[in-house]
Each structure stands twice: as structure tokens, then as C-alpha cells.
Simulated scan of single mutants.
Amino acid sequence: MDRRTLLRATVVGVGGAAFSGALWGQAFGAVAQPGPSPYGDLRAADANGVELPAGFTSRVIARSGQRVAGYTWHPAPDGGACFPDGSGWIYVSNSEVPLVGGASAVRFAADGSITSAYRILSRSNVNCAGGATPWGTWLSCEEVPLGRVFETWPAGGRSAEERTRMGRFKHEAAACDPVRQVVYLTEDEGDGCFYRFLPDTWGDLRTGRLQVLCAPAAQVTGPVTWQDIPDRDGFPIATRKQVSAAKHFDGGEGCWYDRGVCYFTTKGDNRVWAYDAAASSLDLAYDDSLVTGGTAPLTGVDNITGAPTSRDLFVAEDGGNMEINVITGEGVVAPFLRLPGQSSSEITGPAFSPDGSRLYFSSQRGTSGSSAGTGGITYEVTGPFRVRP
């Protein structure tokens, strides 16, 4: 029995997902399947080389090595997030390059015009993804062995600070759960783990406990437990190898929390997982091996975000055919945008403006495909994103 057949039998046998959280609140009982996009088909590429549905427009807000509001935009733009800023907002973006990675920010006025750009983190190493906190900071994560988490301040005016109590490992993304007062963390290793950090005081990430999700190796649905990591510094024994009951995931990537569910992606098997925090249960939201009709639209699964006006998920591809796909609350997965002619790049840093009217993302290597990330392009998409109660 091949992997596709085995997984389908496993998921059907347990009755599929039964989540109380955001995406599966409407009796969705199986992994997402291809279907018509709520936004319609993609149209021919616009002047910026972006294929979008009718009614949507794009603009380029920054290019690596070029000036934006007097500031030279960083190479290899990666994970990002948006933050309210008075009547405007700020978009932050990591730089996934060695030794001098860090993160930068672009500030927007209420009308969407760019007012400034600046550095918020310097002299860190291969800053890949991260996550926003409820108190308005950006967690920038290093994707290297013994990597660190840095807490940064998007508006500037305060130096970034290491948060090494959150574990030293090959970090990818982070997502905060304000109800249970924990931070979920993914690990970009072929046998990586899924972690949560429990700070001693919510809002202060300097001290706390690091735990790892535990479940049988073959389990894709069902209850899970958590165990403390004995040595969060990960040396000489890596954090992912310290707890024998830990469940391992094939290349942890993006991470997004919404109303009781933490969604995270694994690139090695093209999956979007869903952890129901209230039930302490794990399930699959999407798996390309479980697509039952036609070709899987979403491959190269990577960064993930949610639309604040609809709670749909938007999942970026590293590879695939350079798309951001939408996964709706009704369990439909479909392309939302595509970047033709950029097959040597990856889409990174998807994030919505606070009002949900604009989507930001980057093509890490752009049309050049340069491994140094010097061709990076950061985009904004504006249009009629749907609104659901």
C-alpha cells in the first residue's frame, strides 16, 4: 500500500477532523480538496508579473539592494508580519542571509503611501520566519543549528533582544496563543519537532519552559501530549533528540494561530497540520497525498498566514509553481496568485494589513534566482478580500 492510499485510509477511518477552532468550525470533516476559488480564476500576469483574480492589483514596494524611502532593502526577504501604527501600519521582513541577516521594516500611512523604512535587527544569522506577538513585537528566528529567537520592535526605538530561553535549534516560525499563553515554534529539520514555550509571565519571554509535542510516529490524527525539554540550549544533544516520545515532522515551516487552532506546515510531505489547542489534538488540514481529484494545487508548502476578515488560510509555495493558495473554511484549496517566470525563487512572508485589505509577500530571489537573494522583490496586493462573520 503506497503512502497516498495508506493516509487516505487512516484519515477516513478516524472520521476526519472535528475541530472547535476557526477553520473547521463549520462541520468540515476531511482534508482540504481542490475546488473553485472564492476569488475566481487567475488572469494574465499584470505589469509586475503577478497573476491575480479579477478585481485585484499589485505593486512592488521594495527590491533587494534598492532604496525604499531612503533605506536600502535587504537581500533574501523571508518571513514577515504587519502591525498597526497609528492610522497606518508597518510591514516587517526578515533577511535570510548568513551572519548579517536581521530584519527590516516599512512604515505606511493611512492611504498606503510609504513614509519610511529602516532596520530593526542586525548581525543575526539566516533569519527565516518568525511570528507576531499580541503585545506588538516581532519574533525573528534563525534557521541554523543552535539558532536563536530575537524579539524586535517594529516601530523602532528599541534594540532587539535575544530570547534564548525559547530554545536553541533550527528555528523557523512562531505563533502566539493568548488564551493558553504559549508560543508555538516550528523546526526546519527533516526530523524536526513542534514546540511550545510557556513563559513564566505572559508578555515577558525572558524566562519560561520549553516543551515538545509527543505522539506516536505514525499518528496524523488524535490526541497528543507535551513534555519538557531537559536542555533547551541543545548542546551537546539537540533539542529534538532529548525526549524519546517526541513526534517528528518532515521540515517544519510556517505557523499561524487562530481562535484555538495552531496551523503549521511541513515542506517534506506537503502538509498543513492543525493542532486543536483546547482538545490537545492533532489533525491534517491539507496533504497533497490525500487530494482525491486531479492534481494537487498546493506543493512546496511553506509560509502560512490567515486573512483577518475571512479567517481563510493563505499558504505560500517554496517551489511548486510559485503560488499562494487559499484554503477556505469550507475545505477548498485553490490558487490565489502566481508568479510565472520565477521558478528559481520562493514566496515568503505573506501577511495582511491590520484591516485585511492588503496582502504583503516577497519573492525571495525574484526573476534572477540569485542564491544570494539579491533579486528579492516585496509586493503588495490590494483588492476585494472576502469578509465572513
Rank of each mutant, 00 (worst) to 15 (best):
R8E: 10
A9R: 11
G15T: 08
A18G: 14
G21A: 15
W24C: 13
G25V: 07
A27V: 10
G29Y: 11
A30V: 15
P34M: 03
L42G: 00
A47T: 11
N48D: 14
N48G: 07
V50R: 07
G55L: 09
F56I: 01
F56G: 00
R59G: 12
S64V: 05
G65P: 07
D85F: 11
D85Y: 13
W89K: 01
Y91M: 07
S93D: 11
S95W: 02
A105K: 03
R107W: 01
F108C: 06
F108Q: 00
A110G: 00
A110S: 11
I114P: 08
I120F: 03
N125R: 05
A132G: 13
P134N: 12
C141I: 03
E142V: 02
E143Q: 15
P145Q: 04
E151V: 11
P154H: 00
P154C: 03
G157K: 14
E162C: 03
R168L: 11
F169E: 01
F169W: 09
V182Y: 00
F194I: 04
P199A: 10
D200M: 08
G203M: 06
G203A: 10
D204W: 04
L205Q: 07
L213T: 00
C214I: 10
A215P: 07
Q219L: 14
T221G: 11
T225L: 06
W226N: 02
P230A: 12
R232Y: 11
R232V: 12
G234R: 05
I237P: 01
T239K: 00
Q242L: 07
V243S: 03
S244I: 14
S244C: 09
A245K: 11
G252S: 05
E253C: 07
E253I: 03
Y257I: 09
D258M: 12
V261I: 12
G268A: 12
R271M: 08
V272F: 06
W273Y: 15
Y275M: 13
Y275W: 13
Y275F: 15
S280Q: 14
L282I: 05
D288E: 13
T292M: 15
T292E: 15
L298F: 03
T299I: 13
I304R: 01
P308E: 08
P308N: 02
D312N: 15
G320K: 04
N321F: 07
V326G: 03
V326M: 07
E330I: 02
G331Y: 05
V332W: 00
F336P: 06
F336G: 05
F336D: 03
R338P: 10
P340S: 09
S344R: 12
E346M: 03
E346T: 00
E346G: 08
T348D: 01
T348E: 02
G349E: 05
A351E: 06
P354G: 10
L359V: 02
Y360T: 08
F361Q: 06
S363C: 04
G369E: 04
G369P: 02
G373Q: 00
G375A: 01
G376N: 04
G383L: 04
P384V: 04
P384K: 09
R386G: 04
R388M: 12
P389V: 13
